[in-house]
Design a protein around this nucleic acid. Structure first.
Lengths: 210, 210
DNA sequence: TGTACATCAGTGAACGCGCGTTCACTGATGTAC
DNA sequence: TGTACATCAGTGAACGCGCGTTCACTGATGTAC
């Protein structure tokens, strides 16, 4: 039929089913199911198949869980990259404000995914932590590099932003941790606070380094 | 017998047993048992009693878990208060370094408890989060108040440290999150980084407010 | 002080449940000749 | 192109396990008179 999208070979269909399973699991999380209560049967049902069929695609539940986390992290990173691109061309003065507005929206948009990631961050199986930490570290480094580029573009000396970007990440992470239970108004209060704190960090970094 | 410590009345012995149970549970966590794998039977065995007996002291497992978290938080707060008291009399220059050294040691010392708290922070039952958040908030406010007092003592204007102390707490929390899987050397690197970041925060706060 | 009764912390056995996983099997798809 | 055989994604039923929890009961402790 559609020669472009799938060769309709057996392995292609298998791969499609695998993605269908992951999609269904993510969908369940999006719909508000507590991520840690995501059971094999539930995922199977959502994907429209019998429970044991999952074993044709994942060796065990941990493998499915890890694949899910991996998928989520990829989405987050893509979103972060896009957001940074948008800011690139902005004036320094408004860049921070724009960044934080986007961040606030992104947190709302990715809320279920973030919930999933936070939960799995402390999964007894250390593999989860490894993946999450690796990906977070990449995001942080990308941010540091962008900050460095931006500094050069503004005529400031090219300096390293490892420590500063790490601190900013700390602020962002605890923002997420704090905000996940809060309503919209409280989130905005927190966001304003976050803005002040990030400003402090930037000023303090200049005072210390420059 | 010992008229001072216990009247040996029935309710006193019951209360003692309750504390024995909590102590045994905490002991298990200290010994490295993954806190989320703490089962009713395991706690009962550690406390030297039959499983159903726990129901004479806690309505269900959640009540026991919440009591455990509460107990842990009290210990942490006591330790934090003690640490701040020690610093009070120090010169401003060395205070930060001392604080961080103590913090690093405290993290190592309370590692199992911290692990327990982090895990329960994201327990599906929101009551856990409520307790933890409340207690963290108290600690943060105490810290802000101490910072304010210290500023006055140094002749600086009495100003509010809500935003700054919150940022510092963010840095401390993510330090803990990051460090729990690390060896001793990496932790010290991280601690040095944390010191720079806290310095940045303090400088930035002055730049923004003063 | 003694006796009869009430309370209640602690117990051994068992229940029900949902979980991840295994198994023998089916039937459509792919492959060899 | 047709036939015989191999592969393998998907299935229904069942297994074993450990969990929190319930229950009927015991026996020491407390209370009333």
């Amino acid at each position: 039929m559609s020669e472009s999208v799938s060769k309709n070979t057996r392995s292609d269909r298998k791969e499609a089913t695998r993605r269908r399973i992951l999609g269904a699991a993510l969908q369940l999380v999006e719909e508000g199911r507590s991520p840690d209560a995501l059971g094999l049967r539930e995922v199977a049902r959502a994907a429209g198949m019998a429970a044991p069929s999952l074993y044709n695609h994942f060796a065990d539940m941990d493998e499915l869980g890890l694949a899910l986390v991996d998928e989520s992290l990829l989405r987050l990173r893509a979103a972060a990259r896009g957001a940074r691109k948008e800011i690139m061309n902005q004036e320094a003065e408004v860049a921070l404000k724009t960044l934080l507005q986007q961040f606030g929206k992104a947190v709302a948009h990715f809320e279920p995914v973030l919930r999933l990631l936070i939960l799995q961050w402390f999964n007894p199986n250390p593999e989860y932590r490894r993946i999450i930490r690796r990906e977070l570290s990449i995001m942080r480094r990308e941010m540091a590099s962008d900050m460095s580029d931006a500094a050069v573009r503004r005529g400031l000396g090219k300096s390293r932003y490892e420590v500063e970007s790490d601190a900013i990440f700390s602020l962002l992470i605890t923002y997420v941790l704090n905000v996940l239970d809060m309503g919209k108004e409280k989130r905005e209060q927190r966001l304003a606070m976050l803005e002040r704190q990030m400003l402090m960090m930037v000023l303090g970094s200049r005072a210390l380094n420059g």
